[in-house]
Every structure is written in structure tokens, then in C-alpha cells.
Nucleic acid binder design. Structure first.
Lengths: 145, 145
DNA sequence: GCTTCAAGTTGTACTATACAACTAGAACGA
DNA sequence: TCGTTCTAGTTGTATAGTACAACTTGAAGC
């Protein structure tokens, strides 16, 4: 196999994965869409941030984020705290319920991955993980992470 | 790194990729959504098939495929041929225009991948490609390829 | 203090999707 | 052979996610 055919394979397989992820996200985790999951994950990681940060980070329109945030708040998964320094700003935080759901979905997603990866030698898992990190870390046009 | 943290990394990085693919597909290739691209690719690969086959293969509802197919036909990218053996069946084929657009989008997508992968040693590309194939080839609940 | 900038919301429109109801054609069985 | 059941596909309806544009409110800078 040459580098060129390897690149074709990578393109094809990543495309297959993306399509599957999209198709199965709703089915597997009806309680939390892929976007909501990602937003909650970001809030957990950062320990709270503004809607504008989420929009910039994920290359989403601020109106889209606004509605997502409204839905997550309605569901009791996040709460808004007015920034005392700047009253335009609402800092978003996970609620306890949000943390629980996030942890639960993460567990369930991880279990699905673990199942797909059973039988892989540890050495291969580690190399695969490193390749993916390297791939995602490389800069892109529409940088969104 | 242990196998467990490698799995976490794989989950996280694949999720990042899926989100990015979804976000950028529309922006980068406005002429062909990711789903349309996939459907056209399948038609090319198989040399024509039925709408029902597409629905089954990609775990989409037949109504969804029906509308996608209608749009692709309207755009002149595919054509329907009534199966003389079974008049319920319409076999879908790429038109010349469809082949051209498919080739063009494939080139553009491949170029994007190639750019992200510049600087990778050939050996790593080949191993990465093999890992992805192996990952996608493993059976899953909602098997869709 | 105006003007301009920034954060967020709301109105509107479009796409992708699913489910349900339907039509048309095929296949099977008594 | 003729009804029953199955299959392929379309259409009606509803929902989610998304973008763009217009707006509101508050902050910052001359």
C-alpha cells in the first residue's frame, strides 16, 4: 500500500465513521443529542463559560447556541449566572442533574467504544489513539476545536 | 498510557471528528451534502441500486431516501430506470453530471485530507488507515455499512 | 453623552429526518 | 383464479438543528 492509497482509505473510513456517528447518535442517546453532549462536555471541562464562547469554539451561530442553551436550561441540565462584571454576559454552568446525565451518557458511549475495541492489543489501542489525536490536532480551514 | 485511557481518547477524538465533519461538510461542499455524497458514492460503487437498498445500507428511512433521491434526480445527478422484471422497482444510476460532481467532490475532500496528513510518514499513514478499517469493520448494534 | 461595539434573543426559513398512511405492483395459497 | 399479504416507493405531517437578519440591552471609547 502506498501513502496515496492510505490517504484514500483514511478519507473513506473517516467519512463512514462520521455518517454512522450521526445516524446512531440520536438512536443510542435520545436523552442528549451529539451537540448537547458536546456542549455539556465543554462546560464541564471549562467549569463554565459563555454562550458566545461555545458558538466560537464549535463554529455554530450564536442563535443556534442560544436555543440549545435554552433547551438545556429548560431540561434542568445547566444554569445561567449573570456576570456581575458585565450584565450582558451569562456564565453557563452544569447543574448536578447535568453532571449526572453527562457522566451517564459518557459511560454509555464509552461502553460502546470499548465493545467495538475488544480484542485489540493494548499496543494498537494506544497507537490508534495517538494517530487520532494527531489527526485532530492538525490545523484546518474551519478550525473548530 | 493504559488500554482504558486509550479507549477514552479514541472515543473523545472520534467524537470531535464526527462533530467537525458534520459542521464542515455543508460549508466545504455546498454542492453536495454528506448524505448525498455518500449515496452517490454508493451508486457508483455498486453501479446502480434501488432506493430501498440505500435505505437499508445507511439505516435511513425509506421516505428520507425517497426525498433525497428526488432531489438528486431534480439536480440531474441520477436517473431512475424502471426494472422491467418488477414494476415496483426503480433502479438508480448516476448520470454523467452525477459522476462528474462526485469525482469533483471526492477530489476536493481528498485534498483536504491530504493536507491534514502532510508530514506523516508513510508507515504511519498505512497503520492509521488499517486501524480505521478495522474499527469500522467490527460489528455494531445498528450496523449500517 | 453619543456612537459604536458586544452578548444574547427572537423571527423566519430551510434541510434532514422519522413515522404513519397511502398507492401500486408482486407473490403466494386455498 | 382471486383474495390476502408482502414489498417498493411516495406523500402528509411533525420535529430538530441550523443559519441569517433584525432587534434589545448593556458596555466602552471618544
Amino acid at each position: 500500500m502506498t501513502a496515496e492509497t492510505a490517504i484514500e482509505t483514511i478519507q473513506r473510513e473517516m467519512t463512514i465513521f462520521a455518517r454512522r456517528a450521526r445516524a446512531s447518535a440520536g438512536r443510542m442517546h435520545p436523552e442528549l443529542s451529539l451537540v448537547s453532549y458536546t456542549l455539556l462536555g465543554h462546560l464541564e471541562e471549562k467549569g463554565g463559560c459563555r454562550a458566545t464562547d461555545l458558538a466560537a469554539h464549535y463554529a455554530l451561530d450564536k442563535s443556534t447556541v442560544s436555543r440549545q442553551v435554552a433547551a438545556l436550561e429548560r431540561a434542568g441540565l445547566i444554569e445561567r449566572r449573570l456576570d456581575p462584571e458585565d450584565h450582558r454576559v451569562q456564565v453557563l454552568h452544569l447543574t448536578e442533574a447535568g453532571e449526572e446525565i453527562l457522566a451517564q451518557v459518557t459511560r454509555s458511549r464509552r461502553a460502546a467504544f470499548r465493545e467495538r475495541l475488544t480484542g485489540w492489543p493494548e499496543e494498537d489501542l494506544i497507537r490508534f489513539a495517538a494517530y487520532l489525536e494527531r489527526y485532530n490536532a492538525s490545523p484546518s480551514d474551519a478550525d473548530s476545536d
